[in-house]
Simulated assay, not measured.
Amino acid sequence: MLNLKPWYMSRTIWASAVTMLLGIAGLAGMPVDGVDNAALTDTVLQAITALSGLVAIFGRLAAKERIGKR
């Protein structure tokens, strides 16, 4: 396994986070019996991808300097 990727691109990390959130929600009294963990993880990943795209676009539009060599 030589390829590296950021932690937030890991499906394992997101699945674990979703599992922890569902556990906390269950402890708080929310009904989570019918939640499909895999589908929820995919939805969270898609939302994060869309959000990061928006941040990249708005970040580039708000930038004060050009990209490239000086």
Rank of each mutant, 00 (worst) to 15 (best):
L27G: 07
Y8L: 03
G29R: 08
G29C: 06
A38Y: 02
A63G: 15
A17K: 13
I48V: 15
R11N: 07
M20G: 03
G34C: 04
A25G: 01
W7I: 13
N3W: 05
M9D: 15
I57G: 00
R60V: 09
A28Y: 00
L21D: 13
I67K: 15
A25W: 02
L51F: 07
G53T: 04
N3G: 07
S16C: 11
L51W: 05
N3R: 11
G59I: 02
R60H: 12
R70E: 06
T12S: 14
P6Y: 06
T12I: 11
R60F: 12
G53M: 06
G34A: 12
P31Q: 06
M9W: 11
G59T: 00
L27N: 04
I24H: 02
L4R: 04
R66L: 12
V32D: 01
N37C: 07
N37G: 12
K69F: 07
L51E: 08
Q46R: 08
M20V: 08
I24A: 05
R66M: 09
G34F: 08
W7K: 14
A47C: 01
L22E: 08
R66Y: 11
A28W: 01
F58V: 09
T41K: 06
L61K: 11
L2T: 13
W14S: 04
V44Q: 05
A47I: 03
G29F: 10
T19C: 04
A38E: 13
L4N: 02
I67R: 13
L22T: 07
T43S: 12
T49R: 14
A38W: 03
A17I: 13
W7C: 04
A15M: 08
I67L: 15
V44I: 15
A15R: 14
K69Q: 04
D42F: 03
N37Y: 07
G29D: 06
M1A: 10
G23R: 05
I48P: 00
N3D: 10
M1I: 03
A62K: 13
W7T: 11
L45I: 12
A50L: 06
K64C: 02
A25N: 03
I57Q: 05
L27M: 09
L4C: 02
P31T: 06
G53W: 04
Y8P: 00
M20P: 00
I48C: 09
A50W: 01
R60L: 13
T43Q: 11
V18S: 05
L54N: 09
D42C: 03
G34Y: 05
G53A: 10
D33N: 05
K69W: 04
K5T: 12
D33F: 03
A17C: 09
K5R: 12
N37T: 15
M20T: 11
G29Q: 09
M30S: 04
V32N: 01
G26P: 00
R60W: 11
T19L: 11
I67Q: 14
K69L: 04
N37E: 15
R60C: 06
K5G: 10
R60S: 15
K5A: 14
M30F: 13
G34D: 14
A50P: 00
M9K: 15
V55K: 06
R70C: 01
A62R: 12
L22S: 08
I13V: 14
M1F: 01
A62F: 14
V32H: 00
T12P: 00
A47N: 02
L45S: 09
G59M: 00
A25Q: 01
D42H: 07
F58M: 09
K64V: 12
A56P: 01
